[in-house]
Write a protein that binds this DNA or RNA. Structure first.
Lengths: 136, 136
DNA sequence: TTTCTTATTTAGAATTAGTCTAAATCCACT
DNA sequence: AGTGGATTTAGACTAATTCTAAATAAGAAA
């Protein structure tokens, strides 16, 4: 089954550095931090700097090619998945997985009604035990 | 209408500093950051230090007397409300308000099913425009 | 009381994640 | 080759938070 990642439009200036970073994110199954990405990018581009990683991540986010996940704890994580989705975090091992709740559209409305905000997006975070940890 | 805050149990060592910090949080309608709390606490206890604010906040959290709200951006905010609830953040002015979604229990189950995690808690964040900003 | 013990507070150093700056480099175009 | 604008680089900087080690407070025992 092919992965339908967002196609890279050529009018976006995808420099060598930006492309390397996009690759790193797309090649990984997990949700790397800026530092993870920097380490992996160093292998391909030995002179790349930390600032470029951050600049590129901002560029890629704005171009809609990656998304950023922020939890209060620790560093932002980056996600190749750019469609709306939710996250589950394991309280035991810290594992982070994506999932999608189909009732999100209704949730958005319900939350808007309750809070009296004009809703723009909802994000839901589940905390619990991942399948591996729930056994132990 | 009285505010039914959690009662302070005497076996918890509520020192002068910790009590001052708890007061600051309970007296405010908003969700102050550690720095806001430090500034307000200084008025009562002129020698209090930043480290004590953080130590006390940790203590109060563990005692279940306050809760911490972390969003990716900027500093943690502290909340006198300790029961499960959700948050709405204004994309325009940054205002943060509490609300409670009664369907949270079902959400917890649905999210657990989808993610295959053993659910422990869910938290939902709405982003949109607050009542004031939606007019302008 | 005096003394011992343990917890707490304090000030400041250290750490972490991320941003900013200014000089160097790159790239497209004349 | 030469110019201009965007990008990259290294390192300084900032903000939030944690750590450290010495000073203080507070309770129990003598």
């Amino acid at each position: 089954m092919a992965k339908p990642f967002k196609e890279v439009r050529t009018e976006e200036k995808l420099t060598r550095q930006r492309e390397a970073i996009l690759r790193v994110i797309r090649e990984r199954e997990d949700h790397p931090t800026a530092n993870d990405i920097f380490q992996a990018a160093l292998v391909r581009l030995p002179t790349i700097s930390y600032a470029t990683v951050y600049n590129s991540l901002r560029f890629l986010k704005e171009a809609g090619l990656v998304s950023e996940i922020k939890f209060g704890d620790s560093a932002s994580r980056y996600d190749r998945e750019t469609c709306r989705h939710d996250h589950a975090i394991c309280n035991h091992c810290g594992k982070l997985v994506d999932f999608d709740l189909p009732e999100a559209a209704e949730l958005l409305k319900a939350a808007g009604r309750k809070s009296r905000f004009k809703p723009e997006s909802v994000h839901l975070t589940l905390r619990g035990l991942c399948p591996e940890c729930r056994k132990a």
